[in-house]
């Protein structure tokens, strides 16, 4: 069964359609990047994949099961969502934040078991957070905060990891670090990863597949080389765009061209 299979999904807010008849698939061990202009529906689509938004029509299948029919707990055992880091406003410690992810397995009332503790320990190590475990999340840097939220999703032991703009507000070094972590999780643990992202060059470098959202639909989907052509990007972004080759990596390099 494919981890995520969206079929003819139409998504709307207050009766206004944001995306119409979108279909896409995400496979194990693969990173799919959702790109497009502001308001193109990247976050909306991610919310639908996370079962937080019910499609007006069409279905999102999670391992072949209709996501709308999963309970919140069942969904949380299969899908880990890393929200935008601006949501972390309460000074909980990193360990307390990460432990919240275990509720998907243990429920909200029962105490954590030794196995829960072991999972938390493993994930803290994997995300390089052991030294920060007692720190309040509000005191962390952007990159550390993002890592803590990824760790929270990972202790859910999901098959699918959804990252909502994980590189927003991060400096270059952290942007790379976060996406390298996502890549490692996809390759080593076979996670299906979906990431909404603005930076096309990061998408080109880290994602195996890219879905370009524009005009209320998936304008193009495929490998970065297939999607990131001058013609498609110029159409999607309404501005002239030049595509060359990246000097270091075997990937397209996207540059907005000056007008006139």
């Amino acid at each position: 069964m494919v981890p995520i299979n969206a079929q003819n999904v139409t998504l709307a807010y207050n009766g206004r359609a944001v995306l119409e008849n979108v279909s896409l698939e995400v496979r194990e061990g693969q990173i799919l990047a959702l790109v497009g202009v502001n308001g193109a529906g990247k976050t909306t689509l991610l919310r639908a994949l996370a079962r937080l938004l019910t499609p007006r029509s069409g279905t999102v299948l999670i391992h072949g099961r209709d996501a709308a029919r999963l309970s919140a707990r069942e969904a949380a055992r299969q899908i880990g969502l890393t929200p935008q880091q601006s949501g972390a406003m309460w000074p909980l410690t990193v360990e307390e934040v990460v432990a919240l992810g275990r509720a998907a397995h243990r429920g909200w009332l029962l105490p954590l078991t030794a196995r829960d503790r072991a999972v938390i320990e493993r994930v803290l190590e994997q995300t390089d957070l052991l030294a920060l475990r007692e720190r309040a999340i509000t005191t962390l840097s952007g990159g550390e905060k993002q890592r803590a939220l990824i760790a929270r999703a990972l202790v859910q032991e999901p098959a699918i990891l959804l990252l909502d703009e994980p590189t927003a507000n991060l400096d270059l070094r952290y942007q790379d670090m976060i996406l390298a972590l996502a890549q490692r999780l996809a390759m080593e643990q076979g996670l299906a990863v979906v990431v909404s992202i603005h930076d096309l060059n990061l998408a080109a470098r880290y994602a195996q597949r890219v879905a370009l959202l524009a005009e209320k639909q998936v304008l193009a989907i495929g490998s970065p080389d297939e999607v990131f052509t001058e013609e498609t990007l110029t159409r999607a972004y309404g501005a002239p765009i030049v595509v060359t080759r990246h000097p270091l990596y075997d990937a397209p390099l996207i540059t907005p061209a000056a007008r006139g």
Binding site: L52, A72, A76, L81, L92, L100, G101, W108
Partner: peptide, 19 residues
């Protein structure tokens, strides 16, 4: 713990499996 989760916002709490 639900209260802890809710400090991240309702959607984030739902994604953690909270009804």
């Amino acid at each position: 713990r639900p209260l802890d989760a809710l400090t991240f916002g309702e959607e984030s709490a739902q994604a953690l499996g909270l009804n």
